[in-house]
Design a binder for these strands. Structure first.
Lengths: 326, 326
DNA sequence: TGCAGCGATGAAAGCGTTTACATAGTGGAT
DNA sequence: ATCCACTATGTAAACGCTTTCATCGCTGCA
């Protein structure tokens, strides 16, 4: 900074003003300083600025799993909202491991991002509430007892009902669910499914999994080897539905002729014609966008907790069809 | 920090030593300090530490497009390598826009990450070489005249030959390529394709696109409306191949009966049974892993440039088949 | 008894900014 | 000439840590 000031023939203070583009600088000097800075490759040291101002103009995003297009879409929405507010995004992924998430969040907290956006963390309520005391936080995709943070969620109840109704309407009665694994969410999706089934007098078939392809793949294998295999499978999310499709395909089981498959999230994979997965739509970019706006409000000083619920919508494609009587 | 020192009844210096887990601290005091720190929710301020030490123990990763599973796989490999070396990863995405990439890199440079990993940037050679003077840099996925940085690449020449040979072997002669858009790469893949075709006495059909679904979708539409449409389409990467498949499906064109489709990268989408895309395999995680190791070496002081070339391998699945005589 | 070595201390400088403040120079309007 | 608004300057403190250095008390060993 000294170098720039010297070479531009102005004071350090002025350079500082220019770098923060303050309006109280003559355009003449502004340009001069910027030119010299570019020439010298000078770039303000964010660490120093951060130390001095106490803010980083950065929001930290922890994504449950960067492999899942659902989360990258959320990141995209977040990026847009942050950009509009002149903020940067720092992303980190939990890599589907609890320890990975903790590390990622610790890092973000360590770098003192102005806020924290947690996309479907698998940590416990308690842990998350604790993190939330350290920085303005918005969490999305999981239900829990939140304190001191905003949340934005999908109405799991309704989503599960949409799916069950759709399948029941097609004549299915043996419907299975490959559940995902999100402790903090209190297994809402799984519970909602069970409830919806029971409410219709049907027995919920549920096996454990995780929100990835492997567990869909494994789960489908398990389910189809039952004495009375299900005629429809509701996977925890699109990714695991893809796994289910692969396994069924390998087993020579036709979809939807023999078995119907439903996902959740409506990621772009679901829309591919070759896949054409029936799923529940969630406005992904919008979720990220709104969540970030809520976070910005919180950073700006809002202190009351806000909890938003988004209505899911069923998208019927070609992986669901009438049940075969067997 | 003062608070922790006070509450633990030790000096600030000692707390500092503990936080950096220096061996010169008695285990008694270490535990005590750690306990107090956890209790108080104290976490060293990275900005301050960074200012004092001049290093961040962080490597910045700029991904061409976070939506593309190819890049997230690379990030995963990078994360593993970084983790082993006690470093953190900060990711940012270029969102397929040049300005987005510049911003992302500027941010990483601003936060003074110890190194820069650029995954298929679309910026010009000149720009990238300039950035590389500011921090140890490794670039991957693009060919260019690099100075002062390491690179790791795919042998495009060979990859294109594999594809062309495969298709020609199936009897195809009208083979089209939907090119991607990476200025710095000098359009290597496109050139390699053209060369391979010409070498076999065939006319290369090439249209412009970008490495995403949309451009595959658009491109397929354009290609199939030609008077003499191609019998095989080589998309720039898997993502755009997916777009091609969708468009063909919509147009009622059967794959591979009417038209064969080939991708590039062998992302996990390609492997889905429902898609089963013939493509060229690249060891994604490994690329990220190796690139990060090279970067770590560079950070550690190596100054000579290293350029690695990885051999591609054709994975034949079900989107390619014999050419129909038409 | 003396000495080495270890663990700990306290003080102080430094990292690169921002920020507040007091000061000063330059026109232009009055 | 006088005054004001505007732009710029110089200084100094502060941000929260690391690092160095001289010092010190303790333990155990020769």
């Amino acid at each position: 900074m000294d170098d720039v000031a010297a070479k531009a023939g102005v004071s350090r203070a002025l350079v500082s003003l220019v770098m923060r583009d303050s309006p109280r600088v003559s355009s003449h000097n502004r340009e001069k300083v910027l030119a010299v800075a570019a020439d010298l490759g000078y770039r303000p040291n964010m660490a120093a600025r951060n130390l001095a101002t106490g803010e980083t103009k950065t929001i930290g995003v922890m994504l449950n799993d960067i492999h899942n297009p659902f989360f990258t879409a959320i990141a995209e929405g977040a990026s847009t909202a942050a950009g509009e507010a002149g903020m940067q995004l720092v992303m980190s992924s939990g890599w589907l491991r609890e320890a990975g998430e903790t590390e990622a969040i610790e890092m973000l907290l360590g770098m003192r991002t102005d806020g924290l956006l947690l996309a479907s963390p698998r940590l416990s309520d308690v842990t998350i509430n604790e993190f939330a005391t350290q920085a303005p936080t918005v969490i999305l995709g999981v239900w829990g007892r939140w304190e001191n943070l905003d949340s934005i969620n999908n109405d799991e109840q309704h989503g599960a009902e949409l799916i069950v109704d759709h399948l029941v309407g097609l004549g299915h009665t043996r419907i299975a669910h490959i559940a995902g694994n999100l402790p903090a969410g209190g297994q809402q999706r799984r519970a909602a499914f069970a409830e919806a089934m029971v409410a219709r007098g049907l027995a919920p078939i549920i096996i454990d999994g995780d929100f990835n392809e492997e567990s869909g793949y494994e789960g489908a294998g398990v389910l189809m080897s039952l004495n009375e295999p299900p005629t429809a499978i509701f996977a925890g999310n699109d990714l695991s539905a893809i796994g289910v499709l692969s396994r069924l395909h390998e087993m020579g089981i036709r979809v939807p002729d023999d078995v119907s498959v439903v996902g959740y999230d409506d990621t772009n994979i679901a829309g591919i014609s070759a896949v054409s997965l029936t799923t529940v739509h969630q406005p992904r970019e919008e979720i990220g966008f709104i969540a970030t706006q809520m976070l910005l409000e919180r950073i700006a000083g809002r202190t009351d907790d806000r909890h938003e619920d988004l209505e899911p919508r069923l998208v019927v494609r070609q992986t669901t069809g009438p049940a075969t009587n067997s």
